[in-house]
């Protein structure tokens, strides 16, 4: 047997004066994800982008719905591997630029298998106790 359940089980006390103004708590998804269907998470391995604040082990938020433009940080598929670099489009030339002086620019040749997977729109890093 069940009985109807009402919102205020205990009729004692005063209702909160703020209850009308209650809002949802901050949710990181709303900050990081514009389009869920086009958003992918990719883990960084290596130091080539440390100058842009992207460290090995970071998780990239990658949005495939955005058309990549000159200056965007992108995840690209190059010769069968994913790589994260800054995209430079100069005089009909595609360059993948690392943000670390120890690495060299990659000028994409006509014979190379190259495709932009998506544009990096965010970086997630947990410092302590994070699962990823």
């Amino acid at each position: 047997m069940t009985v109807p359940l009402f919102g205020e089980l205990i009729p004692a006390g005063f209702p909160s004066p703020a209850s009308d103004y209650e809002e949802g708590e901050l949710d990181f998804n709303t900050l990081l994800i514009k389009r869920r269907a086009a958003t992918y998470c990719i883990k960084v391995s290596g130091e080539s982008m440390t100058g842009a604040g992207i460290l090995s082990g970071d998780i990239l938020v990658v949005d495939r719905s955005i058309q990549a433009a000159d200056g965007d940080i992108v995840v690209a598929a190059l010769d069968g591997e994913f790589t994260v670099k800054r995209l430079r489009l100069r005089r009909g030339c595609v360059v993948l630029r690392p943000e670390n002086p120890a690495y060299r620019d990659i000028v994409i040749g006509d014979d190379q298998d190259f495709l932009v997977f998506g544009v990096v729109t965010g970086v997630v890093r947990t410092l302590r106790g994070g699962k990823a």
């Binding site: 992918y40 883990k43 960084v44 391995s45 080539s48 998780i59 990239l60 994913f82 994260v84 699962k131």
Partner: peptide
């Protein structure tokens, strides 16, 4: 499980 498990997400260099 590239899109549903944190342990399985793809990697980029």
């Amino acid at each position: 499980r590239y899109t549903t498990s944190w342990a399985d997400i793809p990697q980029a260099r």
